[in-house]
Design a protein around this nucleic acid. Structure first.
Lengths: 233, 233
DNA sequence: CGTTATGTTGACCTCCTTCAAAGGCTGTGG
DNA sequence: CCACAGCCTTTGAAGGAGGTCAACATAACG
């Protein structure tokens, strides 16, 4: 049986386009047979909203690429709270810490219904050694993690809460075009290092000022330029 | 002429012990000649306190390893302020973003008198391809950057300012044993996302409570257990 | 020495947290 | 279908934490 990635009859295959691993492998000049043997161990998983993809401290040698949805990486604080340190969007890779260590450093939880590919660490390591394309892609993913972490420090943990919230909405891709599904107020708080109540108050104020228009529920459309202005002040 | 790294007559060679690049190269089974040709382009630089090692946005294909001293990586904020996103200590590597892009993402400034090795990116890339040991070391360095960035989010940007300051002192290795040279109050503020005044007030309060004992100037000895208790509350 | 950065302290006010209560939305069972 | 429970969100009031602005002290430096 062919692995999902190369099986044209698999219904979820359209989303593979964002999978770096598959893309690089496909263009690496391997034979179709070699290709299949490499891709075989790659599992496609559906992670329902609020489900845990992996838990901090767990030993499980797998790397994940996000095909659709939204995932938060959080760490639990000694006082019982939590702090979200990264948001994963389609195309992002997570769990790379298992390439150099054995345990996950965060707990990964789906904020929306999400599809991921689970790639055994051995597969990544093998490809990394034999395929220069994968090698570069891996480095880029690593750097991307660093960049995203830096963004959390600079944009989401610096300045007054209002400006941070504005930056969060922009980061989430809340444009004026299409409605965007936002995280809960609690998660917003954990993202920005503020309380749930403050997050709620700020969002309510944004709605009153017309910076976000709520088409009922948590689906909103944002005033990009207005938010950008707030983000800088 | 022999490169510094392998020249036993070079006065600064003692500090090479912390240099991952050198260590891995030395044990890679290369001939002495090959070794020299690889290490030749590696420059040793002294970076005086307050000097800029590299500037954000600059194109300069070099990676640096820190041999001694302390360096801050900062980004400039739109409002004129600055935010420190990482601290580099001996053994750390920085500038790895130039392995996958061309520009530095931060400005690197020495907080103390510092010694670094400047390694052309081409050297790193070549070693990365030919030497599995270097390859793993690189990945570990990348992961270390991610871990440190996460630490800045979780420990230095979460909770009340007092707890964050306590965590900063612990992070800086302020034990009860030997006196530790601290950054300026302004830099502490940029590290924690608070104002210089608040940083000063908290440190003054710590001294009054006997959590840090100032042997004049910015050299202090800390009460580790007391700080640890504050850091968790 | 004066001059200039850096650290300290005070007063005031804003922002954010805390604690509490009330309002909405959803699912479930009668 | 309705009632009710449970969860999330919103809002209020009060207090505390941190920011701002300003004065002053102290140390570094020519």
């Amino acid at each position: 049986m062919k692995p999902n990635c190369t099986n044209v009859e698999w219904h979820g295959r359209a989303k593979c386009a964002v999978c770096e691993v598959r893309n690089f492998v496909l263009f690496s000049g391997l034979s179709s047979q070699e290709l299949d043997s490499i891709l075989q161990p790659i599992d496609n998983l559906h992670v329902p909203q609020h489900a845990v993809l992996y838990e901090a401290g767990t030993v499980a040698p797998s790397v994940y690429t996000l095909r659709s949805g939204l995932i938060k990486l959080k760490v639990d604080l000694p006082n019982g709270g939590q702090r979200i340190v990264r948001l994963l969007r389609p195309g992002d890779v997570t769990g790379m810490e298992t390439l150099v260590g054995e345990r996950y450093h965060h707990t990964a939880i789906a904020l929306q219904n999400t599809d991921v590919c689970r790639i055994p660490r051995a597969v990544v390591m093998q490809l990394d050694q034999t395929n220069p394309g994968i090698h570069l892609a891996l480095q880029q993913r690593w750097q991307r993690s660093v960049d995203q972490a830096d963004h959390f420090i600079v944009a989401l943990s610096t300045g007054p809460a209002e400006a941070r919230m504005a930056r969060l909405l922009i980061t989430l891709g809340c444009t004026g075009d299409h409605p965007e599904t936002l995280p809960s107020r609690e998660d917003m708080g954990a993202l920005l290092g503020i309380t749930t109540e403050t997050a709620s108050r700020i969002m309510a104020e944004f709605k009153r000022r017309g910076l976000v228009h709520g088409d009922r529920g948590s689906d909103v459309v944002c005033d990009r330029s207005g938010l950008t202005q707030l983000a800088e002040g």
